[in-house]
Write a protein that binds this DNA or RNA. Structure first.
Lengths: 144, 144
DNA sequence: TTAGGTGCAAACTTTTTGCCTCCGA
DNA sequence: TCGGAGGCAAAAAGTTTGCACCTAA
């Protein structure tokens, strides 16, 4: 399955290791997992794996574009893979997260690419705003 | 200028204080400032103000919808106000940030509101992806 | 036999908490 | 004089670094 990972690593003088495979697997299985959670997951199979290795491996996998991280609200970032495609609408009044299909962004993606040459990563995007329940602002801004 | 802030606080049994005014002013002046930078800025005028107060005040102002935070890349979040309107395209291969006018999002905002009741906060949005220079992925994903 | 990779411990950065004091309504 | 607010110190959370050891090429 990860022949291409092994090859990519080898091309760069790096090695495929059980730890790297386990971390990648964990990211794929968990989706939106923090380094902490990934570590716990990996340690169920290989208890000796250290959280330092998790961080180092996540950094590596991200540099190889195999995983990506997002800040959903406060706290630790969450990691996911391209396979996990959707957009997150994060309410900044409550902690609600609405997942919507990436098709909502098709037009925007096209526009950003043609105008700015920017390739939007729609595989896991977090957009902040207010959910239906909290649509009204907390403070009315008057003209004073 | 911040009569409305004073009133809002009072309605909730809270008080207007010099610290709160200074933090709000700092966020407005600096734009995209980290808590650290805001603290330094405030301390130029009032050296005794503690970073704890910065954090507490930012949390308060955010709850009142007067400021908002965004994660631009790694590291500490940055705070800004509604007055600072634009969208950030953050390249996750380099640290480049392209600022584009919020009008690019008009359609999306409409769609999210009508379909999901979600009010997107377009005042300072960070979209991650790859800039023109880094448009090609680091690893070619083959079918193997 | 050499360089990459890992584990471990410690350092570091960023944020939160507890507690005491101060102060305005 | 009561409760909100801020300062200070310590703790907690999250991440990085230094270093020794191990191992696959």
């Amino acid at each position: 399955m990860d022949t291409s990972l092994r090859r990519t690593l080898h091309e760069r003088g790096m090695r495929m290791t059980p730890q790297r495979q386990l971390v990648l697997d964990a990211v794929r299985e968990l989706e939106h997992a923090t380094p902490e959670r990934i570590c716990e997951h990996v340690q169920r199979v290989a208890p000796a794996v250290n959280i330092t290795t998790i961080y180092r491996t996540l950094e590596l996998l991200e540099a190889l574009d195999l995983v990506r991280h997002t800040h959903l609200g406060h706290g630790a970032p969450t990691y996911s893979t391209e396979g996990h495609q959707h957009v997150h609408l994060v309410c900044h009044r409550c902690e609600a997260i609405i997942e919507v299909p990436p098709e909502e962004l098709t037009d925007l993606i096209e526009r950003l690419r043609s105008r700015f040459g920017f390739v939007l990563d729609a595989s896991h995007l977090a957009l902040s705003g207010r959910c239906a329940k909290h649509a009204e602002p907390a403070v009315e801004h008057d003209g004073s």
